[in-house]
């Protein structure tokens, strides 16, 4: 049972991450490779604040989101000068820089060993210490973010970001500033990724750089592409499929020595087949350029 509850927590955390990515990639049309960097930044800042300052869960999260927002805003000034492959490379570079810092700044981040004994959340007297309690917290947060994303999707902001995606020049002629709208989307997306990082760090109570590598950024992007970008249901389907499917494969009863690699092959093959027949994902509005 704990195992199923754990999967629910991971689904909630990844749902936040994928909605965050959906803002920049699905609505904005820019494929970002830096989501794991902000996810990691959120986790590390939360952990460092919670370990060193007894300010509580909400304040620790708040500081973490502020830091991620500020870094994203500064970064957006640089990376949003680019579009297409150049934007991918710029965010990829940022991802690598953050990972290298997490892996090497031993005095602060603990280097490759990471940070342990991160406190569990305490919200207005509610000690979130058991797995079922954590399910409740993470599902509530994920539901809130889904709601926020749903509102944003059809808000003037959401529509203007989509307009920029579809035709930047046409959007400009309607007095929409592409730079400003994309920058907002990028900052909000990074802040949401950082929130997922706070939840992850406080749940696992141990973090190390391997959880926030480039592979993680690619995985988040894969979830979005498989589920479908630019809407609300696609990311949800993507998260369900990409989290539960590999877990389901564990029950296939393959021989132990080759099971892990065979599962990866089955998983990869099904992804290729899916992308071939559904390039927009299960329920995607756009295919990623």
């Amino acid at each position: 049972m704990t195992y199923v509850l754990h999967q629910l927590i991971m689904i909630s955390i990844y749902l936040i991450l994928v909605y965050a990515t959906n803002l920049v990639t699905g609505l904005g049309g820019l494929m970002t490779m830096a989501q794991a960097a902000f996810y990691g930044m959120g986790a590390y800042v939360y952990a460092l604040v919670a370990l060193n300052m007894p300010v509580g869960f909400v304040a620790s999260c708040g500081i973490s989101l502020l830091v991620a927002g500020l870094v994203a805003w500064i970064l957006s000034k640089v990376v949003l000068r680019f579009r297409g492959e150049t934007f991918v490379l710029a965010t990829l570079a940022f991802q690598m820089i953050v990972f290298t810092i997490l892996d090497n700044w031993e005095g602060v981040t603990g280097g490759s060993y990471g940070l342990s004994e991160i406190p569990r959340p305490s919200l207005f007297g509610w000690e979130v210490s058991t797995v079922p309690e954590y399910v409740l917290l993470s599902v509530i947060v994920a539901a809130l973010i889904t709601g926020v994303f749903w509102v944003m999707l059809n808000s003037p902001f959401g529509l203007s970001v989509r307009a920029v995606r579809d035709n930047e020049r046409a959007a400009e002629s309607l007095r929409i500033s592409p730079q400003k709208q994309l920058s907002r989307a990028f900052v909000i997306s990074s802040v949401l990724a950082s929130l997922a990082g706070c939840l992850f760090a406080s749940y696992v109570t141990y973090i190390d750089p391997t959880s926030f590598s480039l592979t993680e950024s690619i995985f988040i992007l894969c979830i979005l592409l498989v589920g479908g970008s630019g809407n609300i249901i696609g990311p949800f389907l993507g998260v369900l499929f990409m989290i539960l499917f590999p877990e389901g494969l564990r029950f296939l009863g393959l021989p132990d020595e080759s099971a892990a690699n065979l599962r990866e092959i089955v998983y990869g093959t099904i992804l290729i087949v899916l992308m071939y027949y559904r390039p927009n994902g299960f329920k995607g509005i756009y295919s990623v350029k």
Binding site: Y3, H6, Q7, M10, Y113, G114, V131, V204, Y206, D208
Partner: peptide
């Protein structure tokens, strides 16, 4: 590390565990 936590929840009814490597064990 993430996988290890996930697997721990599957194997929580074990009498003893065997792990390998710092991220998983820590």
């Amino acid at each position: 590390a993430t996988q290890a936590v996930s697997l721990f929840n599957r194997l929580v009814d074990s009498n003893a565990l065997i792990s390998s490597g710092t991220p998983s064990t820590a």
